[in-house]
Amino acid sequence: MYDEIPDTGGPGTVILLNGTSSSGKSSIAAELLRILDGTWFHLPVDAFHAMRGGEIAPDDLQAEIDRTAKGFHRAVAGMAAAGNNVVVDHPLSRRWRLLDLLDLLPPERTLLVAVRCPLPELRRREQARGDRQTGLAALQFDTVHAHGPHDIDVDTSAHSPAECAALIRRALHAAPRPTAFETLRRTLR
């Protein structure tokens, strides 16, 4: 009995929150965990970066970030493949990140959310936080949503995290077909 790998059913659902640094992804994720039915996990890429120990030479920083992101993608895919529902907090600021996730996540069970915020507000939030590289949001601003369609867009300058989460929950229950991931997989792969 204890030697059998448990059957966990089909894959879980993935809500992928795509936005720049300081756009409000983590705040929305916290609200989603509060209002979604069933069990959900919040998987923020920042948590994976926070697990890293040791010093990184400046010349090695981008390669380290890329390896961490690739590992993070596989951890997310593994959680979903095992039947877990996950809210993912990750900026698709580099095209390869989206392409990698298109190969890993179940496209029919992935809701891609554009978390938007005007650049002046992002700059204000970065300065107020003090725990982020100033200017990171500006560096990501033009690329994070450049890949194409999302299933839903939310604007954190116009709506609270709770309001954004409620909009996302409604979109999840509306089950758009084809999903943005299905469309992107067909057009980009």
Rank of each mutant, 00 (worst) to 15 (best):
A114M: 01
R67C: 10
I15R: 01
P91E: 07
D66G: 04
Q127C: 08
V87L: 04
E55L: 14
L98K: 03
T13L: 07
H73A: 15
R123M: 09
G71M: 03
E55Q: 14
I65E: 11
I56Q: 03
G53R: 14
R123T: 10
H90C: 09
S27W: 00
N18K: 01
V86H: 07
L92K: 06
R109H: 08
D103H: 09
P11Y: 04
R124G: 02
N85W: 10
W96I: 10
H42A: 11
T20Y: 01
A81E: 10
L92F: 09
G24N: 04
L99D: 08
D60L: 15
R52V: 03
R109Q: 12
E55W: 14
G54N: 06
D59G: 10
G10S: 07
V86S: 05
V14I: 08
V115D: 08
G9N: 09
I28M: 06
I28P: 02
S22M: 06
K70Y: 08
P106F: 08
R125Y: 00
L16T: 03
N18C: 13
E64I: 06
A114K: 03
F48V: 08
P58F: 05
L33K: 07
G24Y: 01
D89A: 07
N85G: 09
P118T: 13
A50E: 13
S22F: 04
E55S: 14
D59T: 09
L16G: 01
D89R: 09
W96K: 02
V113H: 05
S23M: 04
D59W: 07
G78N: 10
R94I: 09
R97F: 12
H90T: 02
D103I: 00
S23Q: 05
T20A: 03
R116Q: 13
R34S: 14
R95E: 14
D103E: 15
P58S: 12
W40M: 07
E121T: 12
R116N: 12
S26Q: 00
L122M: 07
P118A: 09
S93N: 10
C117Q: 04
L16N: 04
A82F: 12
A57E: 15
Q62G: 01
